[in-house]
Nucleic acid binder design. Structure first.
Lengths: 355, 355
DNA sequence: TTGAAAGCGCTAACAT
DNA sequence: ATGTTAGCGCTTTCAA
């Protein structure tokens, strides 16, 4: 019993020969075609099982010349919940349909991205779930426009559906929250405007400022690539000025992690000396004391929608007809202990006014 | 110019026809065979380029009947750095060789795992990088023993090479560190002994106790599946007893995250009221105050070794000859502010002995 | 140096 | 209900 020796080597031809039927019958039986006598089908299946037969998906895909065997999953990073949790959930959902995920990490490098997209096309993936790199190449877009594609987190302007977090409102709420507390000098650390989600958050920021009656000039900004290091750097920059902001908003998950660390390292007490609003999965900030006011997104929901969207797109081919509808998962602002009224006095180095 | 219309559809046959040569010549030219006249080869390549030709990896793999097109990456979870960072690094390293990673998440479910392994075999993956589920099925082991496999983090007793973190020493050091500080009642929260790394950490614990001259009975233990929730639960259990430990060691990344949260929520001050040693990637604990004494592993190094090992295994076929050498990445104990002498007085409910 | 042809393992017309 | 056969796109003998 059991498969001894080397790797599986049984083919339909083998089974057919051994049972003295045709390969077509075997194939039909194995695929549950009703056109084969139940008893025979049963016998074939049992024999296949006994011989440890495992169908070759490549051959199958090649023959069918269209199959859902593989789907490409293209992301800039994977070591942050915004991506890893979506990857996990998509892999889970798609595997139920017998679709396998080919994982590809661009590190936000456009060249690498293009190369990987080509490889994915070469693998004849049925479709793609992608979070494009910041400065995606034209050639990459070309490739994408000829494939069933679902975007998430970031959009790159191709005619493909996508799932995104709707950050504008939460962002604007965050500004209003701080303004209501009395803050007038706010620092913003976010991702570049070239990133669709960076742009959305910026819109939210601006809208919040407008509603709060604050001038855009009231905000010191740093727009950086979303990495933990940039989070640290950005916060240090923002805090080091001669007239540092009394409140900080961070728009981006990886940035927030670094930002929270940098704030912590700066020794400023939250919220007495500084108010802080971070962005991202709660688990990253669970240990901080006080708990941080934060903007969160339900990544699982987002993943679910992405997987569903992909199925839709796979059923109807790439970018047919009109502009596809993007879907949105609403980000939520959660208040916690890291935001409060601004310090009573201006920063020491600012004015000489003692008490 | 550029690829218009539908998906890439150019085949070697097309190129051959267009250039009035045979498919064999095209294939040879494209694969850089020296057997083709350089000038012709050049012309073929240019034409292929111009026509936007992309070789079909499936067909290629099918024909070659052995290829490195795909490698399976099988892990129980992906939302923890212990896995996500290894995934990222492996994807990066393998993609350089033109190998794509098929990501598969078992959620530590043996049935699911078996099913996915079958699918991977069906996809004719060249090999597998796997972190087996806790209670892996015999059938799964069977499959694995007929494939080039590299294990990591966890070993399941098959004759395959692997990369693991060498936790024993760090674990034992942690115990000695606590013992030296004066702790005699230590709590241990770890993963089940059925997990190879759980067993290793336990050995380290025992060795530490022995060296410290402490009895094994001095340790209250909880061995749980590595999830954040279990981390919380375990800590609450350990701390709720009538004679709670004065120090806690956590052996496991996900467990540590939950554990740190639970400790935090319990309101105990570190290290005055409780000493705590956690395990895992520093980024998860960066925000905690005080910084936590921790055991860390260089996952990037681990990933690098895994990728290298895989290449070796792919070159020599599965489990040939003698037992393959496992590799180890040494875990490091970093001292920080969460460990200190035990509280002066025993727990109130413990003994009446004052001063 | 190049071409013709035989597969790789499977599915799907097209017979019977 | 079952068998025959022609591919899917590529590599690779075997001939020329």
């Amino acid at each position: 019993m059991g498969t001894r020796g080397r790797v599986t080597k049984v083919s339909v031809a083998d089974l057919a020969a051994e049972l003295d039927v045709s390969t077509a019958t075997v194939s039909r039986a194995l695929n549950g075609s009703p056109a084969v006598r139940p008893e025979l089908a049963q016998r074939i299946r049992e024999h296949a099982e006994a011989r440890g037969y495992v169908a070759n998906r490549m051959a199958r895909a090649l023959s069918a010349n269209v199959s859902r065997a593989f789907v490409g999953f293209v992301i800039p990073y994977v070591d942050t919940p915004a991506y890893s949790s979506v990857a996990a959930e998509c892999a889970r959902l798609l595997s139920a349909d017998g679709t396998q995920l080919i994982l590809t990490i661009t590190e936000n490098d456009p060249e690498r991205e293009l190369h990987q997209l080509k490889d994915l096309v070469a693998s004849r993936v049925a479709g793609l779930i992608i979070s494009p790199s910041t400065h995606i190449l034209e050639a990459s877009k070309q490739l994408l426009s000829n494939l069933p594609v679902v975007e998430f987190h970031r959009a790159c302007g191709i005619a493909a559906p996508g799932v995104f977090s709707e950050d504008e409102q939460a962002m604007s709420e965050a500004v209003l929250h701080l303004a209501a507390l009395g803050h007038t000098r706010i620092g913003y650390l976010g991702t570049p405007e070239a990133l669709s989600n960076g742009a959305a958050r910026l819109r939210g920021l601006h809208r919040g400022l407008e509603l709060a009656g604050l001038d855009r000039g009231a905000v010191a900004m740093r727009l950086l690539e979303p990495t933990t290091d940039n989070g640290k750097r950005g916060v240090r920059d923002l805090l080091d000025g001669s007239r540092p902001p009394t409140a900080l908003i961070v728009g981006g998950g990886a940035l927030s992690i670094g930002a929270a660390q940098a704030v912590h390292e700066s020794g400023r007490r939250l919220p007495d000396e500084l108010s802080l609003v971070v962005y991202g999965h709660p688990s990253w900030f669970a240990l901080s004391d006080p708990p941080l006011t934060r903007i969160t997104v339900d990544y699982q929901d987002l993943a679910l929608r992405a997987a569903r969207l992909l199925n839709t797109v796979l059923d109807s081919g790439p970018a047919r007809g009109g502009e596809p509808e993007p879907q949105f998962v609403t980000a939520q602002l959660h208040l916690a202990g890291s935001t409060g009224p601004p310090p009573k006095r201006a920063h020491a180095s600012d004015r000489k006014s003692r008490r």
